[in-house]
């Protein structure tokens, strides 16, 4: 559904995308995970035909985003990070004018609007002015708007930005139901791990490059065993000692020493006994996408 080959983009001297390549299959929920400035928004703008890349190729729904932008626009629904609704109009009025942009009118448009509002749970708010809606509801109106022309692909840019956790989960549920009932392929960009973990597959973008690709489970299982995080006053010294004594490859970040290790619980007792007084706090968890990101880039996502 989406094919990206050796995509490169420069803003003047700054390289925002550097030879990015991936493919999204039909019916997938595909995530682009990375920190702000990692290249997600650039990629989103290129895929949504807002700008042309300085190098490489990309196609959406079988159409080249540069040569055939008009066809791409016909087959893609776009949900922006910022608001694209007219606040002074009602939910219905916003949907209606969006429908007109796609050449829909009359009974067809009315039916599509009903369907979209029903799917996103907006039927009881149809007459409400957008400015009176909560952030979560507004995002749902944005999605309903993007679905009117029955796109094969839905592109969502940081759709959950500014939402509280409950609204975010609610949004994720709606996105999953869209995939199920509307058979739409979804590509979303996010810097929120919880959201990324709900994708079928994802790529990790860092400084314009893909540093890892796979399903959340696959990515996490690349890290064997557990992740142990040690807090200490002198991280460099502790990391050095761990390397020496246990033959580990610890990573140091934000005053913490991280270690990937099998049987983490045993390592903890050994480490605490080996360096009495040096360790201030210890925690152990199963690998998350954050750990994958730290391992691949040495930097944090959020």
């Amino acid at each position: 559904m989406i094919q990206v080959d050796n995509l490169t983009h420069r803003y003047g001297d700054r390289t925002a995308l550097d030879g990015v390549a991936f493919a999204v299959r039909k019916g997938e929920i595909f995530g682009l995970l990375g920190p702000n400035g990692g290249g997600k928004s650039t990629l989103f703008r290129i895929l949504s035909t807002m700008m042309v890349p300085t190098g490489g190729r990309a196609s959406v729904a079988g159409f080249d985003v540069v040569k055939n932008a008009a066809e791409v626009r016909r087959h893609v629904g776009v949900v922006f990070q910022t608001q694209s609704l007219d606040k002074a109009l009602t939910v219905e009025e916003n949907l209606r004018s969006q429908g007109h942009l796609h050449g829909l009118s009359g009974l067809t448009l009315t039916e599509r609007m009903e369907h979209a509002m029903q799917r996103l749970g907006l039927l009881d708010r149809r007459k409400d002015l957008v400015e009176s809606l909560s952030g979560g509801l507004r995002r749902r109106v944005e999605i309903a708007k993007a679905l009117l022309h029955r796109p094969e692909v839905l592109l969502m840019d940081e759709a959950s930005t500014g939402l509280d956790p409950a609204a975010r989960r609610d949004l994720s549920r709606h996105v999953e139901s869209l995939r199920e009932h509307e058979r739409v392929t979804i590509l979303l960009t996010t810097h929120i791990l919880e959201e990324a973990a709900r994708c079928d597959r994802l790529v990790l973008l860092h400084q314009g490059k893909i540093v890892a690709e796979g399903s959340p489970r696959d990515l996490c299982s690349r890290i064997g065993g557990d992740v142990v995080v040690l807090e200490t006053a002198d991280t460099a010294a502790l990391a050095g000692k761990l390397r020496e004594r246990f033959g580990l490859q610890p990573s140091v970040m934000d005053g913490q020493v991280r270690v990937e290790i099998e049987n983490g619980h045993r390592f903890i007792t050994e480490a605490v006994e080996a360096f009495p007084g040096a360790i201030e706090a210890v925690s152990l968890h199963k690998p998350t996408l954050e750990d994958v990101f730290v391992r691949e880039t040495g930097a944090a996502i959020e």
Binding site: S48, T49, M50, A70, R73, R74, V76, V78, F80, T82, Q83, S84, L85, D86, S97, Q98, L101, H102, G103, K145
Partner: peptide, 14 residues
């Protein structure tokens, strides 16, 4: 264009 209805127009086939 940054935040508003014009955004949707830019990615519509109109």
């Amino acid at each position: 264009r940054r935040e508003g209805f014009l955004l949707s127009m830019l990615v519509s086939p109109a």
